[in-house]
Design a protein around this nucleic acid. Structure first.
Lengths: 187, 187
DNA sequence: GTCGAAGTAGAACGAATGTTATACAACGTT
DNA sequence: AACGTTGTATAACATTCGTTCTACTTCGAC
């Protein structure tokens, strides 16, 4: 066994580079050469860790999803605070979350005509909906199917604000986004 | 003056073909050759009506925007119904509106790294926000700055539902989208 | 009927892309 | 110390893209 390199870490470096590129200049800028250069490597290394571009993009998408999922670390708080934290995680209030959102939008667009991507998108959203619904139940806001409906409404409201904030940041500083979230939870 | 062809009509045919392609298979599928073929023409004709691909895409985007704007024909109704109709126009409840939404998402993704596109996106949204705010005022729901805030909340809720409906149509048939809209307006 | 501008088609070109192949460097094993 | 596997870089390949160029058609003006 020669030359020890943490394969998973390398793959993360490469998908991170792809995500940065996509967030900065769109998915069209994420060419094999550009991704490799952004990661400080060569296309030879890139193809060594990903069979082809499709695999690279799929992994980039799923890495972005799991990154957002891992950000939902909610312990030691009451249910209402956990719910609030979860929804706040879906707002582009800092550069990191903004980057995640740009990647998400890019893959939403890419999902047209790519069934595998569309399925991944849909499943990720349903998982998120279930997560929010569970927290809605724990917070005692609603139960059963009603909790799912409330979760959908919460997510819709937050996603809508997020989209507006993404493309009109001047109108939507972080405080205003959080104020909108508070208004939503108050009702 | 030889050979009379309605230039504007031809341009619409071409941007329509581009929009169909983008909605069906993503913006990556909207190559010059594919767009020309979709419109039943050749690349020679395409370049005859659009200087380059960038102009074609910009015109396609603006045509999609103005198409949605012209759909807001609201006369002979009370203010509340007009508001409802405007917001319903932003829901992907039929193939046409669904197509408009797919094009919008595609250009949202494209707006990363393209300032001109990002500006157009932002301005279009602000125009829509003003339109909704005016109808909110007429409906007597709120006045002045409050009307704008209410408009933003309405748009956010509708956009959020739209995004969910786009990528999970099974969970969001037209009736459910409209029910969500009614719930929103009732509160 | 002839001429010229407008429309259309198709080929051709350079640039860029995804992919593959080849050569070299690094390190554990024997 | 020699070898084989892994990692990395670079070059080459075929394809596809946007764009440009050229030829042909169509129609009104004279």
């Amino acid at each position: 066994m020669p030359k020890f390199v943490d394969v998973e870490e390398r793959r993360v470096e490469l998908t991170d580079a792809a995500a940065r590129l996509i967030a900065r200049a769109g998915i069209g800028a994420a060419t094999m050469r550009e991704v490799a250069a952004e990661a400080g490597l060569s296309t030879g290394s890139l193809t060594h860790y990903f069979a082809d571009k499709r695999e690279l993009l799929l992994c980039t998408f799923q890495a972005s999803l799991s990154g957002r999922r891992s950000q939902r670390s909610t312990r030691g708080q009451d249910a209402a605070s956990q719910l609030r934290a979860t929804l706040e995680g879906a707002l582009p209030v800092d550069d990191d979350r903004r980057r995640h959102w740009m990647v998400t939008v890019a893959f939403c667009a890419q999902a047209a005509g790519d069934d595998e991507l569309a399925d991944a998108q849909r499943d990720a959203y349903r998982e998120f909906r279930g997560h929010v619904a569970r927290q809605v139940e724990r917070a005692g806001i609603a139960d059963g199917d009603r909790a799912v409906v409330v979760a959908e409404r919460f997510i819709a409201a937050v996603d809508g604000v997020a989209i507006q904030a993404l493309f009109d940041p001047e109108s939507w500083p972080a405080e205003r986004q959080l104020a909108a979230l508070d208004d939503l939870l108050r009702a």
